[in-house]
Design a protein around this nucleic acid. Structure first.
Lengths: 253, 253
DNA sequence: GGACTATGATTGTCGGACAATCCGACCTAA
DNA sequence: TTAGGTCGGATTGTCCGACAATCATAGTCC
């Protein structure tokens, strides 16, 4: 509210360690350095950038955590290909910090799951269907163990995403997946029927893939998620409560 | 292939700087440290963790880049609330490194946009509609400037997401948004009509919000995105080419 | 040829140092 | 009283040098 217009932008001198990180990142994004390529040793970087080793190391740490650089077996640095769960972990944690509600999570998962099943129905191969069925069988074998059921459920949906063959969608889903599927063990714990309904839904989803029937897939995706919500609420949870580490403890690891 | 069974897992000693980062992160995620709270000074952390300052600093850099800690005005460290575009920037870059195709991007955007318009139709307020209309008017005023049109287009869809009031969806969309909307200026550059069709689509989307008509919203969302695709292809691009920095130069900043 | 060893290179950690900057208390002048 | 100026301590960013542990590699021995 200072009556005068802002004439000067804020000066923000960039620390050297950030410049180091950005310089390396530029090389990677431009394609001159490709995943797997070794970045030089710290001593080399010191010479190239003309800064101290401590500074170089701080710059490297900036990139390390995002997966842009990795340490291979011998701790040597190489360009990394950031994997989804790595990014998704960050995103999940951000969602927790932003105190998003389970309702938001559920709504988004619904929308994304419907898109996933559409593509999966279009593109599923025999092989993928077999893998999914194997997962369902495994789930059934341990149907009395809520934790195991939740783990297999998580895997099932991961496989389904691979079947949809869209990596952008996959990345978009991952954060909410990480928060919602681990709560399945709560959702199926309440009722004896919970786990069986889950398995039935999975079977019908695979059936939809076989028949290439999108409507069937969408129908059971909805039922499946509505079941999750009911179980979640039956477990004494409120859909409008914020996601936290207690209820969705998967974002640790 | 050593005939003996592997009895022990590989020991992977965790570097001290990582332990520092994880310790701080745990405090944040547990809620004991909340966004805005000051983390101690480096000297304090040195005392608490019993490691060297260089080590503490490397640990801090690990967190800094993900937005988990921020430096405030005086460069003092405080717990940060990672913002979406910060995470999305990383995600976009990952998508580039993974060489996802524009087709994947387009498919995912379609699915996510349809979800967004559904929620937006449900929840739009008068005020939000007015803001969106102001954006459209501004677009129209500079309809001959492809770069300006692209910028306003980007903003329009951002506003639409806010209107949908689902932060999980917002976060999920952001990476693809960052890659796809900046290419709009290519898409509308080809034809005189491109920009006008874009404005028309925006008007109809707002109309859908006013009438609370989901079908209308979905219809124009589809048309809008199909227009984008046609423009993109007319610009000499192949939908199956990998996203790169040249075609989608927004991930720099 | 294969197992073993010595050597050098590299990383992780430490200690100390200093300039630049920021914060806060104190002081001065209108 | 309050706006503005001064000063000292605290803090960060950067540098230097050092060393143990580990890894890679070449060379050696059987």
């Amino acid at each position: 509210m200072s009556g005068v217009a802002e004439k000067f932008a804020r000066l923000t001198p960039v620390p050297a360690y950030q410049m180091v990180a950005e310089a390396i990142e530029r090389e990677i994004l431009s394609g001159r350095l490709r995943p797997g390529d070794p970045i030089g040793t710290e001593a080399q970087l010191v010479r190239q950038f003309g800064v101290n080793r401590s500074t170089v190391r701080e710059g490297i740490r900036l990139l390390e955590q995002g997966g842009m650089v990795q340490r291979d077996s011998s701790r040597r640095l190489a360009v990394g290909l950031p994997h989804y769960d790595q990014l998704a972990t960050r995103a999940s944690r951000a969602l927790i910090l932003h105190q998003v509600t389970f309702r938001e999570l559920w709504e988004a998962t619904m929308a994304l799951s419907l898109a996933t099943i559409d593509f999966a129905v279009e593109r599923a191969t025999e092989e993928e269907i077999a893998t999914l069925e194997a997962n369902i069988d495994a789930t059934e074998a341990r149907i009395d163990d809520p934790a195991a059921v939740a783990a297999y459920d998580s895997e099932f949906h991961l496989l389904l995403e691979k079947t949809a063959r869209n990596r952008v969608l996959e990345l978009a889903r991952e954060p909410s997946n990480m928060l919602i599927y681990p709560t399945t063990h709560v959702a199926v714990q309440g009722t004896e029927q919970g786990a069986r309904r889950l398995v039935e839904a999975h079977r019908m989803l695979v059936q939809a893939l076989k028949l290439r029937d999108k409507e069937l897939g969408r129908l059971w995706t909805k039922r499946h998620l509505i079941d999750w919500r009911k179980g979640f609420e039956r477990g004494g949870n409120d859909l409008d409560q914020a996601v936290d580490l207690v209820t969705a403890p998967a974002a640790l690891a």
